[in-house]
């Protein structure tokens, strides 16, 4: 019996020799329990050692193997070959980011934006260790829990045409994480985050395409976070208008 095979078309870019990226096709064995990442590992181990890509956990936790698979942003460890077989699989680096090499995207822009929204608890007052834990009820936790699931895989940025059109846009994951800390009862940093989140480059560059939430492998729903931030920021704006002597 001849072995079943599958063709994988990969966008290659070697900065030291290539002017432009170009597709290269590899033939890999087909296994119905393989994901695209397995096929890439097979190529790297057996066919072409020069292929570069990021991966780590192989189980949709680390968030490093995001790629465009047949034009859709997906974790390559989460995309089964059986969903494409016998057709070709086309693999490209995440859309909307510059290409460092082959399937490796340059993600510095996101890292800066993530940092800018202060994605950590900013307490009203520092709490000493002997004051004990800061208690939170399950209901208070559940109000923001979904937004804590973000693994920074950037599929949402690759899915977002507004980020592609306006690279200054703070973008889905960073804004979802800002919202996550704003909703946290232990946090008092909303005003600091609003500097970024409620700016023109913050939620206001979003046109609610909604694809960020569709692409998210962790059901974070950044589109909802952004929408809720728009509403809250609008209420802030009208409050400030009605009460110009208020503290904002």
């Amino acid at each position: 019996m001849t072995e079943q095979t599958l063709q994988v078309e990969i966008l290659r870019y070697r900065p030291e020799t290539d002017q432009d990226p170009a597709f290269q096709t590899y033939t890999v064995p087909y296994r119905d329990d393989w994901v695209v990442l397995d096929a890439l590992n097979h190529i790297k181990d057996n066919i072409d050692r020069t292929l570069s890509y990021r991966w780590s956990c192989h189980m949709a936790v680390c968030g490093s193997c995001g790629m465009m698979i047949n034009g859709e942003p997906k974790l390559s460890c989460h995309a089964f070959l059986r969903d494409y077989y016998p057709n070709k699989v086309r693999v490209e680096p995440l859309a909307n980011f510059p290409i460092e090499r082959d399937l490796v995207a340059v993600t510095d822009d996101f890292m800066e934006k993530l940092e800018s929204v202060k994605p950590y608890v900013i307490p009203q007052q520092e709490r000493a260790v002997d004051e004990g834990p800061h208690l939170q009820t399950p209901a208070q936790l559940n109000a923001f829990k979904q937004y804590t699931m973000c693994i920074n895989c950037l599929l949402c940025y690759a899915a977002c045409p507004q980020y592609g059109l306006t690279p200054d846009f703070v973008g889905p994951a960073a804004l979802a994480l800002a919202h996550r800390y704003n909703l946290d009862t232990r946090d008092a940093g909303r005003e600091q985050r609003q500097e970024i989140a409620a700016s023109n480059e913050g939620v206001w560059d979003c046109t609610f395409v909604g694809e960020c939430s569709q692409a998210c492998p962790k059901s974070v729903d950044p589109a909802a976070a952004i929408q809720q931030t728009k509403i809250a920021s609008t209420i802030d704006w009208y409050k400030a208008l009605l009460n110009p002597w208020g503290k904002r």
């Binding site: 700016s199 206001w204 920021s233 609008t234």
Partner: peptide, 15 residues
């Protein structure tokens, strides 16, 4: 970053 005045038009858009 500058404070945005987008809420004016956005509230009209949403309404």
């Amino acid at each position: 970053m500058a404070k945005s005045n987008k809420p004016i038009v956005w509230s009209l858009f949403a309404g």
